[in-house]
Nucleic acid binder design. Sequence first.
DNA 1: CATGAAATGCAAAACAATTGCATTAGGGTG
DNA 2: CACCCTAATGCAATTGTTTTGCATTTCATG
Lengths: 154, 154
Amino acid sequence: MAKHHVHTKTSRDPECLLCQALDRSRERGLRMTKALEDVLRILIESNKPLTLADIAESKNLSSQADRATVYRLLTKLEKLGVIRRLGLHDRAAYYTMIFPGEHNDYLVCTACGSIDRLHIECPVGELEDEIAKKSKFTQLYHELMFFGLCPKCA
Amino acid sequence: MAKHHVHTKTSRDPECLLCQALDRSRERGLRMTKALEDVLRILIESNKPLTLADIAESKNLSSQADRATVYRLLTKLEKLGVIRRLGLHDRAAYYTMIFPGEHNDYLVCTACGSIDRLHIECPVGELEDEIAKKSKFTQLYHELMFFGLCPKCA
DNA sequence: CATGAAATGCAAAACAATTGCATTAGGGTG
DNA sequence: CACCCTAATGCAATTGTTTTGCATTTCATG
């Protein structure tokens, strides 16, 4: 997704992840702004969860967006279910796209902080249903994180 | 563990979790101080992970320990592998005892922040071995967290 | 019980998240 | 296309924790 078609209200490629995300955002009441497009694009292009600082300082912001703006967008997008906020190992919150039907687990180095998405079959799905029933919790989801020392840091 | 025997260098009950934790701490070079005993006792008696603030402001501190002191103790204990720091859903870090041979998963309400330990058979153990091999990570462990809305907040 | 290292308390600094407010800019309407 | 209302934005200030510096106290050991 290096070079990319223009995203206006009327220009939509159903195959384009950014278009999908923009549509989902608009359906839920967000306006189509430059900053929104930037934030979504950055999250889509990233192969790992990003912090607020990562995004606000990204070179991929077409026009520099203020931290507060990015913060408010991330907050809204999370509430709307477009992105997810993860609590990892350090103090900062990490954000990642929710791609419909996709679930991700992560491998984090506790020394250098590197984050990798794991491409595994997550065995927690059934358990989740069971827990939902027992606990009466709704809107249940889970995070599975593996922590350890990566080869470089060992 | 309401009332409790005195914990000195020479008074040890092998059944007592606090004694065990103190021993583990001493073996790893920590001095036996009032604050250390307090922090360990509070963590042992808690049935859920606690924040720095929870501990520093706990009524169970025999003598008020400074935040910085508690912070440094928690940091050391984590490095020494006596306690574990969890990244949950809000900004603060949560700490919990590591009881040898025990593994815990958590159920967190994203609205009110309540945290419950889950007493389930965690299906991730085998997966962990597999990931350790593939990734070459060492000292691997995992956190499995379920998030959702509790019945009160739904 | 003297001594050196570790631990502590207090205050300040560092950091990331969050909010208030005045201004700007989508986007729906006439 | 001009207009209006409201959402979005930028900037600055606030909050809520975590983290560090330093002088003092306390532990553990010989």
